[in-house]
Design a protein around this nucleic acid. Structure first.
Lengths: 220, 220
DNA sequence: GCCGTTAACTTACCATTGATAAGTTACCGA
DNA sequence: TCGGTAACTTATCAATGGTAAGTTAACGGC
């Protein structure tokens, strides 16, 4: 083995310890994907960083795509947890919606590289990008369902808000779609064009949230 | 040469006719990019369709990326023309803004594959995707400036609207950014997730436009 | 202690990719 | 007719994702 690899983790694993190698591969893949993007990260580079040969990766993943998918699920998890937290601590409908939007924005901007990889699908194959938009009816045991879960929670929040008396200007699911499209637009633009001289980054986030809430919630 | 290629265009060009070959290559590349995406389209497949050898393409383009860029400029051109048309025929500020949004939406949905390739940057290298968001200060003679031109026109329309007395809730450039982010969010979502059971496609377009205009234009 | 099973891993290899080097063909003007 | 050169080809490159087939070593059973 290559004693000079960046993060070589010692020699051969003992029997039954293969899963720790799997974790090491995921960690190395995540670092490299974030550093250089999906296409630029080769299985050989991942293998080098782990300290094994390239074909060894295929003992733990069927292909490069599945490594990416495993990482997708991991990162979606953080956002899903955060949303559950909001749902369990905030009950006022308007406040819930706003908090959801804020959490989504904050998550995207705090993890720009991961958002880019997972929600934006930049530089990743079509087959993976699609999974970020998986439909809720898809097999939930397969990786890549996280995006649909997040969206479903937004639909749920708006439907509950309507049920509890909040008046909406459009059907609840349409409101959810509009809300997501708008907030995603902000995050995507700020991340993809980080060096553009945006007039006012904070204002774009809060402004869009204001605009959307004002637009979907009826104000008599 | 391969007499069985899909769109072989006869033999060797006469002297001085190289530019027609260049057009043929662009046409074949466009078809293949739209059919199969950027990554899946290989130099060899493009060459096959044209009816020449693969290295012949390098007589007309320095690399695959530049073929894509040439196509980007072509397609951006259609939208830029349409916007110019609106600016020259519609004078009422509110109507101008709405028409711009409608044109943008219509363009994106009418050319989903091209929008995907050009504005969304799915399956294309980072280096190309960035060009869709080029800054207006960049060298205008280089390809890929179209995205910035479209955005600049939106900024212009809003600034002129404000100058002619329309009251905005945010600075004009912030309004332009919010407007673009929201409309792009709709187009991107409808295109990328064409098979999602969207509640109401038309309502998402007109609704977002209503929401944005209501949100950025002060209604006393 | 040693031995078979098999998890963990390696070396050698494959077809395909974008791209280059170097040579060949044929048109056109002088 | 002949030199220059635009237009094009063949042969080849290194790098890629992935596979086939063999090697090493840990563990349980005897």
């Amino acid at each position: 083995m290559n004693a000079f690899s960046t993060a070589a983790t010692g020699g051969r694993k003992k029997r039954g310890e293969g899963h720790t190698r799997r974790e090491e591969i995921l960690q190395a893949a995540k670092e490299l994907f974030l550093e250089q993007g999906y296409e630029a990260t080769t299985i050989r580079r991942i293998a080098d960083r782990v300290g094994v040969s390239a074909p060894a990766l295929y003992l733990y993943f069927p292909d490069k795509e599945q490594m990416m998918l495993a990482l997708c699920d991991q990162t979606f998890g953080y956002l899903i947890e955060r949303i559950a937290e909001i749902e369990s601590t905030v009950s006022e409908p308007r406040e819930r919606i706003r908090r959801f939007g804020e959490a989504y924005l904050k998550f995207g901007l705090a993890h720009p590289d991961e958002y880019k990889l997972i929600f934006l699908g930049t530089n990743i194959p079509e087959s993976i990008r699609k999974l970020g938009h998986r439909m809720p009816t898809d097999d939930p045991t397969r990786p890549g369902i996280g995006g649909a879960i997040v969206f479903q929670r937004l639909v749920g929040i708006l439907a509950e808000a309507e049920a509890s008396g909040l008046k909406l200007n459009y059907p609840a699911d349409t409101c959810a779609e509009l809300c997501w499209m708008a907030m995603h637009g902000v995050v995507a633009a700020l991340i993809l064009k980080a060096d553009f001289p945006w007039s006012n980054r904070d204002l774009l986030g809060t402004g869009m949230l204001d605009i959307v809430m004002k637009g979907i919630i009826r104000t008599d």
